[in-house]
C-alpha cells in the first residue's frame, strides 16, 4: 500500500519538476517547484522524517519560494521574455541530462546491495534529531547563525542604491 503511495508521490515529484524546467512563464515555474517541494515533504513523511517534512513545507515552500515570487514581481518578470536557445543546444542539453541519468543509474546498479542494518524507525522524530543537533553538531549550528548574519549584511549591501 505504501509502495503505491510512493509511486504516486514520485510521479507528482518528477512531473512537476519537468514542468518547472519546461514552462515558459517563470511564475508557473515557481508554482510547479512549490508543488515539487510539497511532494518531497510527502516523501519525508513516508520516511518518518516528520521534522524535516515540516521544515521543508515552512522553509522551502514557504520562505524560499515566496522570496522567488517576490523577486519575480519586483523585477516584473512575469512575462516570458526569454530568448530561446538554438535547437541544437536544447537537444544537446537534453541528451547530456539523460546521459548523466544513465551514468548515475549504471554506477549505482552494479554496486548497490544495501541491506538495511539495525533499522530504527524513529531517527526522524524531533526528540532524536534535537539530541543530535544540540550535542554532536552544536558548533555547526552556531556557525549557521554567523552565516545568516553575514548573509543578511551581504544582501543589504548588494541591493543598496549608491
Amino acid at each position: 500500500m505504501l509502495l503505491y503511495l510512493f509511486y504516486i508521490l514520485s510521479a507528482i515529484t518528477v512531473g512537476c519538476a519537468l514542468l518547472t524546467i519546461f514552462s515558459k512563464n517563470p511564475v508557473y515555474s515557481v508554482l510547479f517547484v512549490i508543488a515539487t517541494f510539497f511532494s518531497i515533504a510527502g516523501h519525508f513523511i513516508l520516511l518518518n522524517a516528520q521534522f524535516l517534512a515540516i521544515v521543508q513545507v515552512i522553509v522551502y515552500a514557504g520562505a524560499i519560494m515566496v522570496l522567488f515570487l517576490t523577486v519575480l514581481m519586483y523585477l516584473n518578470l512575469n512575462k516570458s521574455v526569454e530568448s530561446s536557445k538554438p535547437l541544437l543546444i536544447k537537444i544537446a542539453a537534453m541528451v547530456s541530462g539523460g546521459l548523466l541519468f544513465l551514468v548515475l543509474i549504471a554506477s549505482f546498479k552494479s554496486g548497490l546491495s544495501i541491506a538495511p542494518t539495525s533499522v530504527r524507525g524513529d531517527a526522524g522524530l524531533i526528540k532524536n534529531l534535537g539530541n543530535t543537533l544540540f550535542t554532536e553538531y552544536l558548533f555547526p549550528f552556531e556557525a549557521t547563525a554567523v552565516l545568516f548574519l553575514s548573509t543578511m549584511a551581504g544582501a543589504i549591501t548588494l541591493t543598496r542604491k549608491k
Binding site: 518528477v14 519537468l18 524546467i21 526569454e82 542539453a93 548515475l104
Partner: peptide, 16 residues
C-alpha cells in the same frame, strides 16, 4: 537521480 538529472537539464536548457 531523476530529480538531480532534471535539475542539471534545467540548468543547461534555460537562459532565465
Amino acid at each position: 537521480i531523476m530529480l538531480f538529472s532534471i535539475g542539471v537539464m534545467g540548468m543547461l536548457l534555460r537562459r532565465n
